[in-house]
């Protein structure tokens, strides 16, 4: 498996990050959203392969909860296991912070992402009605969570 190199996102990276965000999402975050996250001290990571930026993650720490606010892989690099590697990195961060739970929201229509999260041990916690904008009105969001209380030593296939 190709090894990802990981670095911290800086304000100067936002243009590149936003390009990936726009390519990957029908309703992308604005540049301002990323700037706000950086200014608020959220943990923001860049993932590169052979010096090419291929993805990022944005994580907010709230006491013992890790909120995965954004995780993204450049379209050309999707379906190659990079999403799983990025998620593993987020779980490593969570374990390092002695967090109790990782939570995230995903569009109800995004089966591919939900499959990934389920395969990593996340469970559906609730559905937020009309949480996301959609082409026609609004779309539900699925709140998923991974309890870390049972997680000190993941299977070799996870971490």
């Amino acid at each position: 498996m190709t090894e990802l190199s990981i670095s911290q996102m800086q304000l100067a990276d936002i243009d590149k990050v936003w390009q990936i965000e726009k390519q990957s999402n029908r309703f992308p975050w604005t540049k301002g959203n990323f700037e706000d996250c950086l200014k608020s001290g959220y943990r923001t990571f860049l993932y590169s392969v052979n010096h090419e930026l291929i993805g990022f993650s944005v994580v907010q720490l709230v006491l013992d909860e890790i909120h995965l606010l954004n995780i993204c892989v450049k379209p050309d690099y999707q379906g190659q296991g990079f999403g799983r590697q990025i998620l593993n990195h987020v779980l490593e961060i969570a374990l390092g912070q002695t967090a109790a739970i990782v939570v995230l929201e995903v569009r109800i229509s995004n089966f591919r992402a939900q499959q990934l999260y389920l395969s990593m041990g996340f469970n559906e916690m609730s559905v937020r009605r009309g949480y996301y904008p959609a082409e026609q009105g609004r779309e539900d969001g699925v709140l998923m969570g991974l309890e870390l209380g049972m997680l000190s030593q993941l299977g070799q296939n996870l971490l």
Binding site: L148, M150, L151, S152, Q153, L154, Q156
Partner: peptide, 19 residues
């Protein structure tokens, strides 16, 4: 066998170590 099938194995967190 679980590893071959790609099924994660979860164990209780061993957090009794001194922090």
């Amino acid at each position: 066998a679980l590893d071959l099938m790609g099924i994660p194995v979860w164990v209780s967190r061993q957090d009794e170590r001194l922090t």
